[in-house]
Amino acid sequence: MLQFILRRLALAILVGLTVSVIAFLLLRLSGDPAIAIAGEGAREADIELIRITYGFDRPLPIQYFDWLGQILRGDFGDSIYFRSPAGPLILDKLKTTVILGISALAVALALSIPLGVLAAIYRNSWIDRLCLAIAVVGQALPNFFFALLLIMLFSIKLRWLPVSGSSTWQHFVMPAIALGYYIAPPFMRLIRAGMVEVLEADYIRTARAKGLPSGKVIFKHALRNAIIPVVALTAVQLGYLLGGSVVAETIFALDGLGYLAYQSITFKDFPVMQLIVLLLSVIYVTLTLASDIANAWLDPRIRVAQA
């Protein structure tokens, strides 16, 4: 088990480093940061000054290793745009994104568990196909488009919910639905497949034969076992949610990490951008690692196969 964990940990670190290199290079490829920072109408001398001040005149590998060294020493640099330390800035926004991520996950589970169970119980019936249709629409509908549909219905037509902002819990309802619906389909399919398998197991037949009410059989005996793989998927999807909320946060003007990422791309705020990419990749890699370890712990076949 220890060998397995060490191997996975080494892999996770490599993935993190690779992501940081790619992010660093991609950001630099998008144009001269000094020109972007100087803004419209800046003179060549101003731009040159910025280039030297921020060290953009040095070779890329040196810039990268300098930055990595600073990060390892705990110095996250300053935001070029907001002129304040990047670390606290990002932590401040992380709260909103975490609330959004967890609410979206709750929406996804609240939607996918009943639908997945229904689809499994009424396998191959119109109910199953309806659940499949809901899942397909959720996956196919662009996130931003669904968000705008929600705004049209709940804010403009019904006037039940505020369009944008993050000051009350109501502000999180539509973004959570928009994001939650988008990630619900894989959960739904996983639960359906798990339930179909479990419902045919002998112990379920025994439970039914004992005369237990069908609700109890489904939710207490069957779902409990069918839901195990969902736990692993949840960890990965939460990582995706934290990084994938850029669009939702921008549309709903939620002052979170995704919105900060959007702003820092717009203003070529490299220190913030790099730090966000690094943070998200670390979170993602950590969650994946945790779910791998949990899976290996739950199912010895995995660690044997990978050792």
Binding site: L148, I156, T250, A253, Y259
Partner: peptide, 9 residues
């Protein structure tokens, strides 16, 4: 509010 559609909404 960065998104134009949201502003209109």
């Amino acid at each position: 509010i960065p998104d134009r559609q949201t502003q209109i909404a």
